[in-house]
């Protein structure tokens, strides 16, 4: 595939990411889509380590490291400073992991997007605290092993639906993306860049060591999450206009789970249950996107209106 992105690299080689790291794939494509007028704010995360140890930096664009809860807030302040400096060309990006977004950074994120701060907040999601050694986060999916959900105590709770939480803030743009769909990612990045106010991109990024997968299937595994509707690709504008972006090949969830060591304890009954959960979520999303049931909804509401106004015919 040819990307509609900058030919230049904004990430150097020589970084310390694990082989096949999904976060780096995401960051590399993301920065190529963004171009040079970008500043990254990176709260504690794998990326915080990957971007380099003093005096080296992986990035050819500016990076401001931030404490783990502070991605959105540091970005807010930086944006304010640029505004005061009259720099309107630069886009401020907060680049955080799932822990820094779903958990410890959520307050700052919620605050910042409620203020509709003009930045792009990217959560690259590898579904656990990977940098600290694969501990469970509120992004860890149902069924997963982590070092803090070991053995038969695997996570029996759903993953937090961060996208819907952001949508609930009714910010101008929320989108999911996935490292296996770079063209879609680039399009969404460019779209986000063109919109003023708070933009949230949720990028699914595999973690070979944390997911217990061989590095070479890093992208393939991420793709399967989309194909199995576990991580649907969609975007929401102004908190209301839903568009589902992927309508390709479909897979049962088992395909996705089976290749990953973190799910190796799951049984056929578990897969069945997870399949149901996924279908429920998928159905919900489709209705929000205006498919089938939504039409019925519109009909019934117009019928109700008709009854209220006594205009039955």
């Amino acid at each position: 595939m040819r990307l509609d992105a900058d030919e230049r690299e904004f990430m150097c080689s020589g970084h310390a990411a694990c082989p096949g790291c999904g976060a780096v794939i995401a960051l590399r494509i993301f920065t190529k889509a963004m171009g040079e007028n970008t500043i990254l704010v990176i709260p504690a995360s794998c990326t915080g380590v990957i971007v380099g140890v003093y005096p080296q930096s992986v990035m050819r664009i500016p990076v401001v490291h931030a404490p783990m809860p502070a991605g959105a807030s540091v970005a807010s302040g930086l944006r304010a400073a640029l505004d005061m400096r009259g720099d309107t060309d630069t886009t401020v990006v907060a680049w955080a992991g799932d822990g820094g977004t779903f958990d410890i950074g959520f307050q700052a994120l919620s605050g910042a997007v409620e203020r509709n701060e003009d930045f792009i907040y990217v959560c690259y999601d590898n579904e656990a605290y990977m940098n600290t050694g694969i501990q469970r986060s509120s992004s860890t999916p149902y069924g997963a092993w982590t070092t803090t959900t070991p053995g038969q105590d695997w996570k029996r709770l759903r993953k937090k639906n961060i996208v819907e939480a952001l949508v609930a803030h009714r910010i101008p743009y929320v989108a999911t993306a996935n490292i296996a769909f770079p063209e879609d990612l680039v399009r969404k990045v460019k779209k986000a860049k063109s919109i003023k106010g708070s933009k949230f991109l949720h990028i699914f990024a595999s973690c070979p060591p944390g997911w217990r997968i061989p590095s070479e299937i890093s992208v393939k595994t991420a793709r399967m999450a989309v194909q199995a509707n576990i991580f649907p690709l969609y975007e929401v504008e102004d908190g209301v206009r839903y568009t589902i972006n992927y309508k390709g090949k479909q897979r049962p969830v088992q395909d996705y789970f089976e290749v990953q060591g973190r799910f190796s304890h799951l049984t056929a009954e578990d897969f069945e249950q997870i399949q149901k959960m996924v279908e429920e979520d998928w159905g919900l999303l489709q209705r929000k996107a205006g498919y089938q049931a939504a039409d019925a909804c519109i009909q019934s509401s117009s019928a109700q209106r008709a009854i209220k106004t006594n205009k039955v015919f």
Partner: peptide, 10 residues
């Protein structure tokens, strides 16, 4: 920082 990571031959 004042260097890139390119001297790290990964």
């Amino acid at each position: 920082t004042y260097e890139t990571t390119e001297s790290n031959k990964t």
